[in-house]
Amino acid sequence: MAGRVTAVSRNETYVFSKPNRESITLLAGLGVEGDVHAGETIRHQFRMTYEPDLPNLRQVHLMHEELFDELALKGFDVSAGQLGENITTRGVDLLGLPTGALLHLGEQAVVEVTGLRNPCAKINDFRAGLLGQVFSLDRDSGEFTFKSGVMAVVRRGGPVRPHDPVQVELPPPPHRPLERV
């Protein structure tokens, strides 16, 4: 599987959306340089209050741009960085990846996919009704659907820019499906 980066975003403060940048730098074991969620331990604002010493499995948030196309068909105008992601991609089935998949971004950077982003109610503050489009419960099966991207940790640092290639390296089988982190 191959795809490309379409946008990169970061923010130094805890706000929902992240402004697009010309480039970001990934730091091994930490996340996006200058981003509020970078660090070895949890940086998610809510989870820091009750699990502050757990490893940060959410160093980098990746979102598939195809979601924005899907949302536009339902009347929601959403673009890169607005849902808080750091890296927006096209042509990569992020949600279909197994846990532990490696994404080679550009010439140097490598991230390891740790799980699905668990969307929060702040999505509805951004656009009313949007949470129901990126998170749902199938009443018959009891299964949840998470569409708001994947989380990853940085295995090898380096710069990432729009138009950089994304190469997927699958882990050895058996593959474990993504769970929320």
Rank of each mutant, 00 (worst) to 15 (best):
D35H: 00
N56E: 11
E70D: 15
R47S: 05
L105Y: 00
A28W: 07
V8G: 08
I123F: 15
R156V: 02
S9D: 02
V5N: 03
R117A: 09
H163D: 15
A7E: 04
G149S: 11
E169S: 15
Y14N: 12
H37C: 07
I24L: 14
Q82V: 03
L26G: 12
F68W: 14
V15D: 14
G29V: 03
G29A: 13
H61A: 02
G96W: 12
R4H: 09
A2Y: 09
L26N: 09
V111R: 06
S136F: 00
V160T: 06
V153K: 13
V111F: 08
A101M: 04
T6G: 08
G106Y: 02
Q82F: 02
F76A: 07
L62N: 06
N118Y: 01
L95S: 04
L131Q: 13
G149R: 06
V181R: 09
P19R: 06
Q167C: 01
K147P: 02
S148V: 00
F146W: 13
F68R: 04
N118M: 12
E112N: 08
R176V: 01
G115M: 05
E40K: 15
L102H: 14
L26I: 09
M48T: 14
R10M: 15
V154W: 02
A7N: 08
Q59P: 06
T88P: 12
E85H: 01
D69Q: 11
D35M: 10
L27F: 04
V8E: 06
L103R: 10
F126C: 07
L73H: 13
V160Q: 05
E85L: 07
Q133S: 05
P119G: 08
N86T: 08
R139P: 01
T99S: 05
E66C: 09
L105R: 01
L94D: 07
M48V: 14
E40D: 10
K74E: 13
G157F: 05
L71F: 06
E65S: 13
R47L: 14
E143P: 00
E107G: 12
P177I: 03
T114E: 07
R161L: 11
V5G: 09
M48K: 15
Q108I: 00
Y14G: 00
H37V: 00
T145Y: 10
Q59D: 05
F126P: 11
D140S: 10
A128N: 11
P177G: 04
A72L: 14
P174R: 05
G115I: 00
T114Y: 01
G39Y: 12
G142H: 11
A80F: 05
F68A: 10
S23L: 03
L83R: 00
N11A: 15
F76N: 04
R180T: 09
H37W: 11
D164R: 04
I42S: 03
M63Q: 12
F146D: 00
M63E: 07
D93N: 15
G129Q: 09
V153G: 08
L102G: 05
V8K: 06
L103A: 06
L97G: 04
E33C: 03
H37I: 03
G115T: 01
